[in-house]
Design a protein around this nucleic acid. Structure first.
Lengths: 127, 127, 127, 127
DNA sequence: GTGGTCTAGACCACC
DNA sequence: GTGGTCTAGACCACA
């Protein structure tokens, strides 16, 4: 269900964090669904339980899941598929903006690109 | 001229690296413009010269600036000269904007995302 | 395993950088092999950990190795995987050998030049 | 007659050093030919006389030129066009070997490439 | 004075 | 324990 890339520079706990967000945005996980226990997921992935615990703590801190001792961790009620999708989309967008900036795209061009799209312009239009 | 956020989890040298790129993207710095000397910028920002040096070294390694001992550091001519890559970057950005729009991201959020990045915001910050 | 020449004008970190590449070219190191830890190699060579770290950082930046905190540094899989570039490199080398032969370089000199480089000699040394 | 690239990472004095070698190998300068004076060349190129002086000192140290106070600097008698050509060719070869090594060419392949060429193999043969 | 390298020693995030 | 970052301070090559 969850996968981590050990060769990646991205910390494992962060990969787990984002995996949960992705699961919700894809509709695989829904509000009040139960997440695997820390130990189960740790042994399943062959990683340290501390790492899983760290990811869950961050998710709880950010209000995306809630945990109750003895029962487990669950997707927060407020964390619907829609909000998850919008959230991940916004993050992807930021990454795209950043890489375009690093490629020499000026701020004006970037802003007008956004305007263009939201005003009905087609992404495939010649620039 | 350059600013760094010491609270950020993003390394100072990386903030400097991107600041220079941003300056060029904003048109403040142009090819063959002289960058502040390593020591001057270090004392100006209140940081260690090594940290500035690290940023400059990386910029040079990546071909964005050129440095010569005894003279200083300068914006490379080839920087942002390649309009072809800039145009493809812009098209990639437009595609990203469009898909984010389809995922429910509002125009305001998209615009502020652009502002964030060009003002030094980090794409990796949790929303 | 790794050796550095402290007398050389070539920076130690660069010697290390090329040593790793040489090790792979010689077949001593293969993809996913673990490199010595930064601290271990530093004490082994009697140099500062920062210097080793600098070499490793550059190797990672250039995609030859990958490092993860808490685990170590490893030879990248993609390294020397690209036989195409290796073949073109070999053809370029042959052209260079031929033109040097036509310029009066003896076979012995050419062979010892190759030995020099692969044994750590620097191409920039004055002859 | 002499040119220097101020943007290059190669020190100016070294560019001058190699310029003289190239001039001899091209037959432009011959044994006992007079080199421009330090001051003349410095003002001509718009660089510091110390830099020219350094280049000349190295050339003299390596036996390629000789200087006599009050008269100037001259190409050494032993430094014929042939030796200059062979010298520069060997240096070019070393550079080529090094870059091929960095591209993943093994030592064996490099050595057999040399053998191939000197045994009559054509550089354009398929590898 | 300029950038480049290196040391010594510290703290942090990650596993 | 592992790599990553930063500081403080030193020396060198270059112009």
């Amino acid at each position: 269900m969850f996968k981590v890339n050990y060769q990646s520079r991205v910390p494992v706990y962060k990969q787990l964090y984002e995996s949960v967000l992705r699961m919700v945005s894809l509709g695989v996980l829904k509000p009040n669904d139960k997440l695997p226990t820390v130990r189960a997921l740790a042994t399943d992935l062959g990683i340290n339980p501390n790492t899983v615990s760290k990811a869950y703590s961050m998710l709880e801190h950010d209000g995306y899941i809630y945990s109750t001792a003895g029962k487990g961790s669950f997707i927060a009620e407020s964390f619907s598929e829609d909000t998850a999708t919008r959230l991940t989309a916004l993050r992807t967008l930021k990454t795209a903006v950043k890489s375009s900036m690093l490629s020499g795209v000026t701020k004006e061009d970037a802003l007008s690109a956004v305007e263009d799209i939201y005003n009905g312009g087609d992404a495939d239009d010649r620039v």
